[in-house]
Design a protein around this nucleic acid. Structure first.
Length: 258
DNA sequence: ATGGTCGCCATGCGA
């Protein structure tokens, strides 16, 4: 089973990139973030034509997350249970025998701004929810844009990023705490060299490789047993009119082969 | 030193 996560920065602007990529990278489950469209204007028909079922949690202009699956989808929740949030950032589903959660963590704006405090509020509620959720579901995959670089090698420059949003020690510690609820970082099980998933649109950052690793697939204990490989695909970032993020892919072996 | 580039119910805001 092949699972991908991709922050597309507007699905309507990126639809051809996403469908072209899926034709070359046939995935069973796809987690999409930053749809930037209403649920009514999401191009569900395009994905249904590619034999995907679609689960959506979206809103106008900002945020929005989707789960696509070749298998039937049962929606578990829209939003983090117990967290009162007007932004469409968390969608948890059950499909093909596993629970998949698609997440778009707030960017955080300037350090110590209201947006920054909201980012921590969101993450602490997420951590609290996952602590009890992972006890119930040993086959739990959490994937998406976390807007935090976990380790020092997840940014192009420690000096430039020092004390900047997405790389403050406080953010990195919270992400570590979420991981330590009972997940492993899938990409890091496969890829040891520095790997980015996002490059700023400004200043030709992608050509200078001034990026960060902000997108992750976290696997719970049950799924780690099925883990095969994980990787990123930078090619879509080099196309015209790209998303600023690239897909992260994880392949799980079928249970029957273990 | 500032702004740099995108995408959004459109113009300033969020990223």
């Amino acid at each position: 089973m092949r699972i991908a996560t991709w922050n597309v920065n507007s699905i309507r602007s990126r639809i051809s990139h996403v469908t072209d990529w899926l034709k070359n990278n046939p995935c069973d489950i796809v987690l999409l973030q930053e749809l930037k469209c209403t649920e009514e204007s999401f191009p569900s028909d395009v994905f249904e034509d590619l034999n995907y079922n679609v689960a959506l949690y979206s809103q106008p202009t900002y945020n929005g997350v989707a789960v696509l699956s070749k298998f039937p989808i049962q929606i578990i929740c829209k939003g983090i249970p117990g967290f009162n949030d007007s932004s469409a950032r968390y969608l948890e589903c059950f499909t093909n025998g596993i629970t998949v959660a698609c997440i778009y963590v707030p960017n955080g704006g300037e350090v110590n701004s209201d947006k920054y405090l909201y980012k921590f509020d969101f993450l602490k509620h997420l951590e609290g929810y996952l602590k009890q959720r992972i006890i119930q579901e040993s086959n739990f995959l959490l994937g998406g844009d976390f807007n935090i670089a976990l380790n020092e090698d997840d940014v192009f420059s420690i000096d430039v990023m020092q004390d900047q949003t997405c790389f403050t020690l406080k953010e990195r510690m919270v992400l570590r705490q979420i991981l330590d609820v009972g997940f492993l970082d899938a990409l890091r099980l496969s890829v040891k060299e520095q790997t980015f998933t996002w490059w700023d649109y400004r200043g030709g950052a992608v050509f200078k490789n001034k990026g960060m690793r902000l997108d992750y697939i976290f696997l719970s204990s049950g799924l780690i047993k099925q883990f095969d490989i994980a990787f990123v695909d930078k090619k879509p970032r080099l196309l015209d009119k790209p998303s600023d993020h690239i897909p992260v892919v994880c392949i799980l072996k079928d249970n029957k082969y273990i």
